[in-house]
Design a protein around this nucleic acid. Structure first.
Lengths: 276, 276
DNA sequence: TATAATAATGACTAACTGGTCATTTGTCAA
DNA sequence: TTGACAAATGACCAGTTAGTCATTATTATA
């Protein structure tokens, strides 16, 4: 299983520099110092690799940002959001580069749908943040604001990533916070109206079923040795099967697993399921 | 020569849908209904095709926007800028898609440098616009504003192009104008400072030499039959060799050729050369 | 040590890539 | 009708691609 991560890391590096299409499996295996056959023991195709990469990093990114948004004090919410975003882009800069490069690229339909799905989740998180911050004041402009904020993030990220700019993180965040606030307070003419937003924010995204969550929990339970994490996962499974704990306890249990990289996603899903 | 345009058009369509790397010369020639050999009679390589595409459309785009910026009344300047931008993106939507998709893509070094060059020209035009509009009021934030405005354009363009949104152009422009004005008036914490801008806006771009302009003029003169355009070009060449006309006359001559698609670029270069 | 099970290899395939060039086709004037 | 020239063809080349699989190496178990 460690080999899989090696391949993902090295491949990501190559993708970030040359693009997905322009990087061959041979190049990846050479760069990893493994044989071509070994690659196909870990991934059943080159496309599966890119999809796993997308899943791996987007799940972390979205869980992280969503947690921050839902657990920050109002006065720090916006800056915490931008810090979280920057942190993710910075720590996984190769992935960020691939993301920006390949954003609209065709690749496969499967890839596109997946990306749109994650994008949509991020939209919802940002919308939640905006509603919480400005409530009724931005009723007519909130969807427009979502895209403006995403736009700000994309612009400055691209600028920084592809020009290797020296970054004063605090300045960057202050600058972004100011812009977001300014736009929220002064914009009166939204381009993305409520009508248009219905075209963008697709109506239904499949509700995560209890069964699916339990399946995921079982999977994770097998991965862990005895630990706080394992115990927490086990208790969360109990709560799923028959609710008995108070929401404070559930929240605490989620907190226990939150910081383990392999639990961020399940933690995000459960937090939404329990509506915490 | 008409075949060259056919190839460019059809290839652009494929590039917009599949990306440059993912489109083969075979596909292009099949789509054009010509043989592979015929392709190589028009372009000496696949890369030359993409470079010619970039040149063809970017020259039109930049000349157009630059003209609008330098010839609009102050109160309409911003909206004229956004209209011009939208018009170009809309009329050449396939090129716009390629541009957004392939923006950061590796491709070749030659391609990258070329793109950066055009990008830089656009930056300068936007900067000129901002300085003219807000003068001293944005002294510390103007570089940041350049990237914010470019960001706005990119975001909304991407949104519209890749989601096939129905567009109310007037609304779009009003919305963008408002945002630009709001940012210009309220932003106090620029991320792109004067220092950082020196890293982005490269210091020197080779000054277009008089000889180069004359060469271009001669080239265009051969293309035209007797016409107002040809006469204007000829007079402009005279003016280059030994200035005698007043700037009003020169401006009029430039106006004569401006709208001919093959003259937009030379018109842009001359306008900058004569500092009109 | 012997046996079974798993991990890893890299030569191989079939399909496709950008690009070439001897050959054919089409279009003129004589 | 002929001949000269340009335009267009597509079989072909050498190289690369994603993916396979018989073979070999490594490890664990008894």
């Amino acid at each position: 299983m460690v080999k899989k991560l090696l391949i993902m890391e090295k491949a990501l590096e190559l993708f970030a520099n040359q693009g997905f299409e322009a990087t061959s499996v041979q190049q990846i295996t050479d760069y990893c110092g493994i044989s071509k056959g070994a690659f196909y023991l870990s991934f059943k195709s080159k496309e599966e690799l890119i999809i796993e990469l997308i899943d791996y990093f987007m799940k972390q990114f979205i869980s992280d940002v969503d947690y921050v948004v839902k657990n920050s004090k109002k006065e720090e919410l916006l800056s915490e959001f931008f810090y979280a975003t920057y942190r993710n882009f910075h720590e996984h800069s190769n992935f960020a580069k691939v993301l920006i490069k390949e954003q609209a690229q065709s690749l496969s339909e499967a890839f596109l749908l997946r990306m749109r799905n994650y994008d949509h989740m991020l939209d919802k998180t940002i919308l939640t943040m905006i509603e919480h911050l400005y409530s009724d004041a931005v009723e007519h402009t909130k969807y427009d604001l979502v895209y403006s904020i995403k736009g700000l993030v994309n612009n400055y990220s691209g600028l920084i990533l592809f020009n290797n700019l020296p970054v004063d993180v605090d300045l960057l965040v202050r600058s972004l916070v100011e812009k977001a606030n300014i736009l929220a307070q002064h914009v009166t003419i939204p381009f993305v109206s409520t009508e248009i937003s219905t075209l963008l924010l697709r109506p239904t995204d499949e509700k995560v079923s209890k069964e699916h969550l339990i399946e995921l929990l079982d999977q994770k339970l097998n991965e862990f040795d005895e630990s706080i994490e394992k115990e927490s996962l086990s208790l969360l499974k109990q709560q799923l099967l028959e609710p008995s704990f108070s929401s404070a306890i559930v929240k605490g249990l989620l907190e226990n697993i939150r910081n383990h990289p392999h639990c961020k996603w399940i933690s995000y899903l459960l937090r939404n399921y329990f509506e915490l």
